[in-house]
Measured scan of single mutants.
Amino acid sequence: ELSWTAEAEKMLGKVPFFVRKKVRKNTDNYAREIGEPVVTADVFRKAKEHLG
């Protein structure tokens, strides 16, 4: 699991709890794919757009 900024964690907190774990995993995987060592708010937004 990658490191997350406080802002990205806050955004994740707005995701319904029953899918939060999956969203975190998918976002981590997306960040790795694009070469990001940390999940930022920008990476979170891009993952959301990319993953739907």
Results as ranks from 00 to 15, higher is better:
52 G>W: 08
6 A>C: 07
11 M>S: 04
3 S>K: 14
30 Y>T: 02
47 A>F: 13
27 T>R: 02
20 R>M: 04
5 T>W: 02
24 R>T: 02
41 A>K: 07
47 A>Q: 04
7 E>W: 04
21 K>C: 09
51 L>D: 08
47 A>L: 05
4 W>V: 00
21 K>H: 15
24 R>K: 12
25 K>F: 13
22 K>H: 14
52 G>Q: 14
27 T>W: 03
26 N>G: 11
37 P>A: 12
41 A>F: 04
19 V>W: 15
17 F>W: 15
23 V>A: 06
4 W>K: 00
8 A>F: 00
47 A>K: 02
18 F>Y: 12
3 S>Y: 12
14 K>R: 11
32 R>Q: 07
2 L>M: 11
9 E>A: 08
2 L>S: 04
10 K>I: 13
7 E>F: 04
34 I>L: 10
50 H>C: 06
40 T>S: 06
50 H>G: 07
12 L>C: 03
50 H>T: 08
16 P>W: 08
19 V>M: 15
19 V>R: 12
42 D>E: 14
47 A>T: 04
46 K>M: 09
38 V>D: 03
12 L>S: 01
28 D>R: 03
46 K>W: 09
44 F>L: 05
29 N>C: 07
16 P>A: 06
33 E>Y: 13
10 K>L: 13
30 Y>P: 01
31 A>N: 00
35 G>M: 06
18 F>V: 11
44 F>V: 04
40 T>P: 00
44 F>S: 01
40 T>I: 01
29 N>D: 14
10 K>R: 14
25 K>I: 14
30 Y>Q: 01
18 F>I: 11
51 L>N: 10
14 K>Y: 09
11 M>A: 07
30 Y>G: 00
23 V>C: 06
25 K>Y: 12
23 V>D: 02
40 T>H: 03
12 L>A: 02
10 K>H: 11
24 R>D: 00
4 W>I: 00
25 K>M: 14
15 V>D: 03
2 L>E: 03
37 P>W: 12
32 R>P: 01
22 K>S: 12
43 V>D: 01
47 A>D: 01
32 R>N: 07
47 A>I: 05
12 L>D: 01
16 P>S: 06
15 V>P: 01
34 I>S: 07
16 P>N: 06
8 A>W: 01
44 F>Q: 01
8 A>C: 02
16 P>H: 08
25 K>W: 14
6 A>V: 11
50 H>S: 11
42 D>K: 07
14 K>N: 11
28 D>A: 07
35 G>K: 06
52 G>Y: 09
10 K>S: 11
45 R>I: 12
17 F>Y: 11
52 G>I: 13
41 A>C: 06
34 I>C: 07
28 D>Y: 03
31 A>L: 02
33 E>L: 13
17 F>R: 10
28 D>F: 03
28 D>M: 09
32 R>H: 08
38 V>N: 05
36 E>L: 07
34 I>Q: 11
6 A>Y: 09
21 K>N: 13
35 G>Q: 06
21 K>M: 13
41 A>E: 07
8 A>H: 00
4 W>D: 00
21 K>E: 15
4 W>H: 01
19 V>A: 15
13 G>A: 15
3 S>V: 14
9 E>Q: 09
14 K>H: 09
40 T>R: 02
41 A>H: 04
19 V>Y: 14
20 R>T: 03
48 K>G: 09
35 G>D: 05
42 D>I: 07
19 V>D: 15
1 E>T: 12
16 P>Y: 05
19 V>N: 13
37 P>G: 09
15 V>W: 08
2 L>C: 05
11 M>V: 04
25 K>A: 12
20 R>A: 04
7 E>R: 06
15 V>Q: 05
43 V>E: 01
18 F>Q: 12
18 F>S: 14
45 R>F: 08
5 T>H: 04
43 V>N: 01
48 K>A: 14
29 N>W: 10
5 T>N: 05
42 D>N: 07
8 A>Y: 01
22 K>E: 14
49 E>V: 09
46 K>S: 09
50 H>R: 08
30 Y>D: 00
23 V>M: 09
37 P>K: 11
10 K>F: 11
25 K>L: 15
10 K>A: 14
4 W>Q: 01
14 K>P: 03
5 T>E: 04
10 K>Y: 11
38 V>C: 08
39 V>G: 00
42 D>T: 08
24 R>A: 05
28 D>E: 15
52 G>A: 15
24 R>S: 02
44 F>I: 03
5 T>F: 01
29 N>L: 12
47 A>C: 06
17 F>L: 12
21 K>Y: 11
13 G>R: 14
3 S>L: 15
26 N>K: 13
5 T>Y: 02
2 L>R: 05
48 K>M: 15
18 F>M: 11
36 E>T: 08
32 R>I: 08
26 N>M: 15
30 Y>R: 02
5 T>I: 02
34 I>G: 04
30 Y>K: 02
52 G>L: 15
3 S>M: 14
44 F>M: 04
46 K>D: 07
4 W>P: 00
39 V>P: 01
39 V>L: 01
43 V>C: 04
49 E>Q: 13
17 F>I: 12
31 A>H: 00
3 S>C: 09
39 V>N: 01
35 G>C: 06
42 D>G: 06
2 L>Q: 05
18 F>C: 13
22 K>T: 12
29 N>F: 09
41 A>M: 06
34 I>Y: 08
2 L>H: 05
50 H>M: 10
21 K>D: 15
19 V>L: 15
32 R>Y: 06
31 A>S: 05
5 T>A: 04
32 R>K: 09
42 D>R: 07
